[in-house]
Structures are given as structure tokens and as C-alpha cells.
């Protein structure tokens, strides 16, 4: 992951702590205890300090499952069925969950400057010049070769999305790893890895066709280091990049202003 390169010094925590909802008064230890729990249980997906991870930005104040303390408590305890957010009730005591909430509150950046891009221009780029819909879907439109982006504005932080556009191989979502196989008769097939063990390989090409091979029938099997998605660094101007991000940010946020 790229997160480790951007680790925040611990001291920054105190400086940036401007809480949307105050941590429990008279209990400064809760934030510190929550920080340690967060590092252990949450950081690998939500990122150092709650943002720039692959999971939703917890510092933005926008949370799909509710942003009140009781919502956060329920989400952490029970998880979000059908998502990568698992239930922590068996792993964390209620007091520990409350400490994590105190920490998340302390990290709030709800007052930060909004995105500068034009979401209408970004939408046009997505469906036009960018060719994003060749692989990605939004709602009923587009293709399902890449991750479905219908709710990506809620699922990923803007900084994560920007990094993904520039360096798509930095964090490849599980289930979308690329694979190239060469058959014994010299045919090369590139696609998404659906299964790979020491005896068999299943992959799906960009048209959606599924191939299943015995390893013994293949000359080579190579896991792609890079993403199947091209980098948009240089392909899009900085303005276009901001426009696209402004559009992506709206996805799954009906009725919210970016």
C-alpha cells in the first residue's frame, strides 16, 4: 500500500484535532486509547488517521451509515453487510468502540476546502474522453470489468481516488488483479484473475469471457504487477483531473453538495 509513505507524525494529531463532536469531556485518554485501537483494527483499510485509505474517509464528516455516535457504534459493532466492513462486536469491548469513536471525532476535517473541479465537465470526461465506462459502471450504464463506481464517492476518499488515477497499481482492489497466461500453443490471454492456485487458473478477459486452464496446459502464468487500468497522469490535465474527481465524489451522495 502507499499509505506508509504518507504517515503523519503523531504530534500532528493534537494540532489538527478540531472536533466536529467533542471527544468525551474530561476523558482525554479516550482519544489516545482510540488512536491505538484504530491503528490496530481500522488503519489497514481506513488509512493512517482515518483517511487516504481504501475504505471511506472517516475525517470528512460524510458517512454512508450515519455520522452520529450511535451510528458509528452500530457500524463498528455490526459491520456493514455486503461491504468490506466487518463486525467488531466480538473483537472490541463497548468501551473500546467508544474510544475509537472519540479518536475518529478528533480527526474530523469537515471544515476543509471543498473540491474545486466542475462535476458536469467531470461527468462528460467519464463517459467520453476518459473511456472510464469501458471498464467501470455507474448505475445501469458502463461495463463491469472494473470495480463498480456507483457509490465510489462514499466508499473512497478523494485523495485515494486521485492516487488511483495517477498510480492505478498502487492498491488494486481484491478481485481485480490482472493475470496474463500463455498457452502451450503460444496464445496470450490477459484478463482479471478469478482463481489461481498451483493446479488451475481461471481468468476473465475484457469482453467478459471466462477461461479455465489446467496449469499443465499453460506455458506461463504471470500475475500483473501493474493494474489493468491505465494511468491518467498526463492523459488528463490537472483541471480535468479535478473535474473528474468532483464527479466521482458525487457518486453515491445523492442530494449532497460536493
Amino acid at each position: 500500500m502507499t499509505i506508509s509513505k504518507r504517515m503523519l507524525p503523531a504530534g500532528l494529531l493534537a494540532v489538527t484535532a478540531w472536533a466536529q463532536t467533542a471527544a468525551p469531556p474530561g476523558n482525554p485518554g479516550a482519544v489516545e486509547a482510540g488512536a491505538q485501537l484504530f491503528e490496530r483494527h481500522c488503519e489497514s483499510c481506513h488509512g493512517k488517521g482515518g483517511h487516504e485509505g481504501r475504505a471511506p474517509d472517516l475525517t470528512s464528516g460524510h458517512l454512508a451509515s450515519g455520522a452520529r455516535d450511535e451510528d458509528l457504534f452500530r457500524t463498528i459493532s455490526d459491520g456493514i453487510p455486503g461491504s468490506e466492513m466487518s463486525a467488531y462486536a466480538a473483537r472490541l469491548k463497548p468501551a473500546e468502540i467508544r474510544n475509537i469513536i472519540a479518536f475518529v471525532r478528533s480527526r474530523s476535517r469537515a471544515g476543509e476546502a471543498p473540491l474545486t473541479g466542475d462535476k458536469a465537465r467531470g461527468e462528460a470526461l467519464f463517459w467520453g474522453k476518459g473511456g472510464c465506462a469501458n471498464c467501470h459502471a455507474v448505475g445501469a450504464r458502463g461495463n463491469l470489468v472494473g470495480p463498480d463506481l456507483s457509490r465510489i464517492g462514499r466508499q473512497r476518499s478523494v485523495s485515494y481516488l486521485r492516487e488511483s488515477l495517477v498510480n492505478p497499481g498502487g492498491d488494486i482492489v481484491r478481485g481485480y488483479e490482472g493475470l496474463t497466461v500463455v498457452t502451450r500453443d503460444g496464445k496470450t490471454i490477459r484478463g482479471i484473475e478469478r482463481h489461481r492456485d498451483d493446479f488451475s487458473v481461471v481468468l476473465q478477459d475484457f469482453s467478459g469471457k471466462i477461461y479455465s486452464f489446467e496449469r499443465s496446459s499453460l506455458r506461463s502464468v504471470t500475475a500483473d504487477r501493474s493494474s489493468l487500468m491505465p494511468s491518467y497522469d498526463g492523459r488528463f490535465s490537472p483541471t480535468e483531473m479535478n473535474d473528474l474527481l468532483a464527479y466521482l465524489f458525487t457518486l453515491g451522495r445523492t442530494g449532497e453538495k460536493p
Partner: peptide, 13 residues
């Protein structure tokens, strides 16, 4: 309480 004090992570790529 958990007393591992961080751990190991896979190196990208």
C-alpha cells in the same frame, strides 16, 4: 490488552 506494538506488512508488489 493487545501488546504486539505494530507488526509486519506485505511490501507493495
Amino acid at each position: 490488552a493487545w501488546y504486539q506494538l505494530s507488526g509486519g506488512r506485505d511490501i507493495p508488489g
